[in-house]
Simulated scan of single mutants.
Amino acid sequence: MTKKILVFGASSSKNSINKQLATYTANQFKNVSVEILDLNDYEMPIFSIDKEKENGIPQLAHDFYAKLGSADLILISFAEHNGAYSTAFKNIFDWASRINGKTFQEKPMLLLATSPGARGGSSVLEIAKNRFPFQGGIVKGSFSLPSFNDNFDSEKGITNKELKNQLLEIVNSIEL
C-alpha cells in the first residue's frame, strides 16, 4: 500500500517559497503519494473562544484536521513572520487544536523552513520542533534552508550541494 505524505507551506502566499521547498522535499521520497494543501483553502474567521461558543468550530477546521489524520507523514515548511508562525497557519492550527489537543494525531512529521535571509526561518522552526510533540506530532527530522533565492532553483531544487545532501540524509532516514 502506497504511503501518503501531506504537504504544505505554512503561508498564505500564492508564490510561497516554503510551499516550493515542501513540495520539492516531498518529491525526494520514493514510492509515495503526495497531497499538497494550500492554506488559502482553509481560511476561517480569526479564532476566538467567543466565536467558537457562538458558531462552533468551522467545517474547514474539521476538514483540515481530517487531512492531517489521513497522512502517513506530515511535511510542513514554515514561513517566518516576526520570528514565529504566519497568521494564516496559526489560525488554522488554533481552530484544529480545538477539535483535539493532539492536533497531529501521533503522525510522523518532517519540519522545514526557509526564507530569503541567512537564518532560513530557524526561529519559527525551533518553535514548531519544541511545540508539536505536545500537539501529537512525532518530529522525525527538521531542516532549514538559508538564503532561499541563492540556494534554490524552481527547476533544479536545492542548488547548494552540501545543503541538498543534508536534506536527502534526513529524507532517507525517515521510514514510512
Results as ranks from 00 to 15, higher is better:
G69Y: 01
L125A: 06
S77H: 03
A71G: 08
A118P: 14
K90V: 01
A128Q: 10
F143L: 04
D72A: 14
L39H: 00
G121P: 10
R98W: 09
Q105W: 13
P116Q: 09
S123W: 03
I74T: 04
L112K: 06
I49P: 11
S86L: 02
D50L: 13
G101V: 07
S142C: 05
A79M: 13
K107V: 03
S142F: 01
H62K: 04
I49K: 13
P45H: 14
N100A: 07
P58D: 09
K107R: 03
D94K: 08
K129Y: 08
Y42E: 04
T114D: 00
F134R: 15
N82A: 06
K140D: 03
E43N: 04
E43H: 03
F78L: 11
Q135W: 10
S77I: 08
H62D: 02
Q135E: 15
F47C: 11
V124C: 07
W95E: 13
D38Q: 01
L125P: 02
N91P: 13
G137A: 08
A84M: 15
G56C: 13
E126S: 08
I92V: 15
D72I: 15
G56Q: 05
S122P: 05
S70R: 00
R131C: 12
G117H: 06
I127F: 09
N91V: 11
S48G: 07
P45W: 15
R119F: 10
N130P: 05
R119E: 06
A61D: 05
F104N: 07
N130T: 15
M109H: 04
G136T: 03
N91G: 12
F143Q: 09
N130F: 12
K129W: 06
S48W: 11
L75Y: 01
Y42W: 03
G83N: 07
A118E: 15
L110M: 14
R119K: 13
F104L: 12
I99H: 11
D72H: 02
F104D: 07
I46F: 09
S97W: 14
G117R: 04
R131D: 14
G141I: 02
K90L: 13
L112I: 05
G83I: 03
R119L: 14
D41Y: 05
G83S: 04
Q105V: 11
N100H: 03
R98G: 06
P133V: 13
P58A: 09
E106A: 09
F64R: 00
G120S: 14
F132T: 14
S123H: 06
K102Y: 04
D63W: 01
R119D: 11
L68Y: 08
I57A: 10
M109R: 10
G69Q: 06
E43W: 02
A61M: 10
I57P: 05
N91L: 10
Y65G: 09
F64K: 01
F132N: 13
M44S: 15
F143N: 06
L75F: 02
V124E: 03
Y65D: 07
G117A: 11
G69T: 11
T87F: 12
A71N: 09
L75C: 03
F93C: 07
E52H: 08
E106Q: 09
F89W: 14
S122G: 10
L75M: 09
D72K: 08
S123A: 10
M109K: 11
H81L: 01
N40H: 00
G121D: 00
K53V: 10
K53C: 10
K129V: 15
F134I: 12
N91Y: 13
L125I: 04
H62T: 04
F78R: 10
L110G: 10
K107T: 00
P45V: 08
L68R: 01
